[in-house]
Deep mutational scan, measured.
Amino acid sequence: DVEPGKFYKGVVTRIEKYGAFINLNEQVRGLLRPRDMISLRLENLNVGDEIIVQAIDVRPEKREIDFKYIP
């Protein structure tokens, strides 16, 4: 289970104008929005990159997770 405030290693699987989709595993995916990136820009991410993200909002009923990147 993903818990708000905890850090997780994930893989960038898709990049859109509104953010990057990060997979923690095959069943768990969330969104990293540009506003939640500190010292990292969306255009510097590539599909396949491994990054450490912090879960900031977890909505299991909608199967949605918002992430934050903190270097």
Results as ranks from 00 to 15, higher is better:
Lys68Val: 08
Ile51Trp: 01
Phe67Val: 04
Phe7Gln: 06
Arg33Val: 03
Tyr8Ala: 01
Ile38Arg: 10
Gly19Leu: 03
Phe7Arg: 08
Glu64Ile: 11
Gly5Trp: 09
Asp36Cys: 06
Gln54Met: 15
Leu24Trp: 02
Gln27Trp: 15
Tyr69Asp: 04
Asp1Tyr: 14
Val2Phe: 10
Ser39Thr: 14
Ala20Phe: 03
Val53Thr: 01
Arg63Leu: 13
Asp49Ser: 06
Val47His: 04
Asp57Pro: 03
Val58Glu: 03
Arg35Phe: 07
Gln27Asn: 15
Val28His: 09
Gln27Gly: 13
Met37Leu: 05
Ile51His: 01
Glu26Arg: 15
Glu16Val: 14
Val47Phe: 05
Gly30Asp: 01
Glu16Leu: 12
Lys62Leu: 14
Val58Asn: 06
Gln54Phe: 13
Glu3Phe: 13
Ile56Glu: 04
Ser39Lys: 12
Arg63Pro: 08
Glu3Thr: 14
Gln54Cys: 10
Gln54Glu: 07
Asn25Glu: 05
Glu61Asp: 15
Ile51Ser: 00
Arg63Lys: 15
Thr13Phe: 08
Pro71Lys: 08
Tyr18Gln: 06
Leu31Asn: 01
Gly30Tyr: 02
Lys62Met: 12
Asp57Leu: 10
Ala20Tyr: 04
Tyr18Ile: 08
Gly48Val: 00
Ile38Met: 12
Val12Trp: 02
Asp57Glu: 15
Ala20Met: 03
Lys62Thr: 12
Glu43Gly: 11
Val12Phe: 01
Leu42Ile: 12
Gly19Tyr: 05
Asp1Ile: 13
Tyr18His: 06
Asn25Lys: 06
Val28Leu: 15
Glu50Val: 15
Asn23Met: 11
Leu31Met: 07
Ile70Trp: 14
Lys6Glu: 09
Arg63Ala: 13
Pro60Ile: 11
Tyr8Asp: 01
Asn44His: 15
Tyr8Pro: 00
Ile52Gln: 07
Ile22Arg: 00
Asp49Lys: 05
Val28Trp: 15
Val28Gly: 04
Tyr18Asn: 05
Ile22Cys: 01
Arg59Glu: 04
Phe21Gln: 04
Ile51Asn: 01
Ile52His: 07
Glu26Leu: 13
Thr13Gly: 07
Tyr69Gly: 02
Asn25Tyr: 07
Leu31His: 03
Asp57Trp: 09
Val2Ser: 02
Pro71Thr: 08
Pro4Trp: 07
Ser39Leu: 13
Val11Gln: 09
Val28Ser: 06
Met37Tyr: 03
Gly30Gln: 01
Lys68His: 07
Glu50Tyr: 15
Leu32Ser: 00
Ala55Pro: 05
Ile70Asn: 11
Asn23Val: 09
Val2Asn: 02
Phe67Ile: 03
Ile22Asp: 00
Val12Asn: 00
Ile56Asn: 05
Glu50Pro: 13
Pro60Val: 13
Lys9Ile: 12
Ile56Lys: 12
Asn44Ala: 12
Tyr8Met: 02
Val53Gln: 00
Glu43Cys: 09
Glu26Ala: 15
Ala55Asn: 01
Val11Gly: 02
Val28Met: 10
Gly5Ala: 05
Asp49Phe: 06
Glu26Asp: 13
Phe67Gln: 02
Asn25Val: 05
Asn25Trp: 12
Arg41Ala: 12
Met37Lys: 02
Ser39Cys: 12
Leu42Lys: 04
Asn44Thr: 10
Arg14Ile: 08
Leu32Gln: 01
Ile51Tyr: 02
Glu64Ala: 07
Gly5Tyr: 08
Val12Arg: 00
Tyr8Trp: 02
Ile70Ala: 13
Lys6Phe: 10
Met37Ile: 06
Glu16Ser: 11
Asp57His: 14
Lys17Leu: 12
Val12Asp: 00
Gln54Thr: 08
Gly48Gln: 04
Val47Glu: 08
Asn46Cys: 11
Val58Tyr: 10
Arg14Phe: 07
Val11Phe: 12
Tyr69Cys: 03
Asn46Ala: 15
Val12Lys: 00
Pro34Trp: 10
Leu40Tyr: 06
Asp1Phe: 15
Val53Phe: 02
Asp1Glu: 13
Asn23Cys: 08
Lys9Glu: 05
Ile22Thr: 00
Phe67Ala: 01
Arg29Tyr: 14
Leu40Pro: 02
Val2Glu: 02
Arg59Trp: 06
Met37Cys: 04
Glu16Asp: 07
Leu40Asn: 05
Ile65Thr: 04
Ile65Met: 05
Lys68Pro: 01
Ile52Lys: 06
Asp66Arg: 14
Glu26Trp: 15
Gly48Ile: 02
Lys62Cys: 08
Lys68Leu: 09
Phe7Cys: 08
Lys6His: 12
Met37Pro: 02
Ile65Gln: 03
Glu43His: 12
Asp66Val: 09
Lys68Trp: 04
Val53Trp: 02
Pro34Ile: 12
Thr13His: 06
Gly48Asp: 05
Ile51Ala: 00
Leu32Tyr: 02
Glu50Gly: 11
Ala55Tyr: 03
Lys68Thr: 08
Met37Glu: 02
Met37Phe: 03
Asp49Tyr: 08
Asn46Pro: 01
Lys6Tyr: 10
Asp66Cys: 06
Ile65Tyr: 09
Ala55Ile: 14
Arg59Ile: 04
Ala20Leu: 04
Asn46Met: 15
Lys9Thr: 10
Val2Ile: 15
Arg29Lys: 12
Glu26Cys: 10
Pro34Ala: 12
Leu24Asn: 01
Ala20Lys: 01
Ala55Phe: 04
Lys9Ala: 10
Asn23Leu: 09
Asp57Asn: 15
Glu61Ile: 10
Arg33Asn: 03
Val12Pro: 00
Val11Ser: 07
Lys9Tyr: 11
Glu26Val: 13
Pro71Gly: 12
Lys68Gln: 11
Val11Leu: 11
Pro4Arg: 14
Tyr8Phe: 05
Glu43Trp: 12
Pro4Thr: 14
Val58Thr: 08
Ile70Asp: 15
Val58Phe: 08
Ser39Asp: 15
Ile70Glu: 12
Lys6Pro: 03
Gly48Met: 06
Val53Asp: 00
Ile38His: 14
Thr13Val: 11
Phe21Ala: 03
Leu45Glu: 00
Asp1Ser: 14
Arg14Tyr: 06
Leu32Thr: 01
Gly48Thr: 04
Ile15Val: 11
Arg29Met: 12
Ile38Tyr: 11
Tyr69Arg: 02
Asn44Val: 10
Asp49Met: 14
Ile51Cys: 05
Glu50Phe: 15
Gln27Thr: 15
Ile70Thr: 12
Gly30Ser: 01
Arg14Cys: 06
Pro34Met: 08
Phe67Gly: 01
Glu26Lys: 15
Ile70Lys: 08
Glu50Met: 15
Ile15Cys: 03
Gln54Trp: 12
Glu61Tyr: 09
Ile38Phe: 11
Ile38Thr: 13
Asp66Ser: 11
Asp66Pro: 03
Thr13Tyr: 08
Glu61His: 12
Leu40Ile: 12
Gln54Val: 12
Asp1His: 15
Asp36Pro: 01
Gln54Tyr: 11
Ser39His: 14
Leu24Met: 05
Lys62Arg: 14
Leu45Ala: 01
Glu43Ala: 12
Gln27Val: 12
Phe7Ile: 08
Arg33His: 05
Ile22Leu: 05
Arg41Asn: 10
Gly5Ser: 06
Val2Ala: 05
Arg59Thr: 05
Glu64Thr: 10
Ala55Thr: 07
Lys9Asp: 05
Glu64Phe: 13
Ile65Ala: 06
Gly19Phe: 05
Gly48Phe: 07
Asn44Ile: 08
Leu42His: 04
Ile52Gly: 03
Gly19Asp: 00
Leu42Gly: 03
Lys68Phe: 09
Glu43Pro: 06
Ala55Glu: 02
Leu32His: 01
Lys6Gly: 10
Leu32Gly: 00
Glu61Phe: 08
Phe21Ile: 12
Gly10Ile: 02
Lys62Glu: 11
Gly5Gln: 06
Ser39Tyr: 11
Val53Arg: 00
Pro34Arg: 11
Glu16Ile: 07
Ile15His: 01
Glu43Ser: 12
Tyr8Thr: 00
Gly5Pro: 03
Asn44Tyr: 11
Ile22Ser: 00
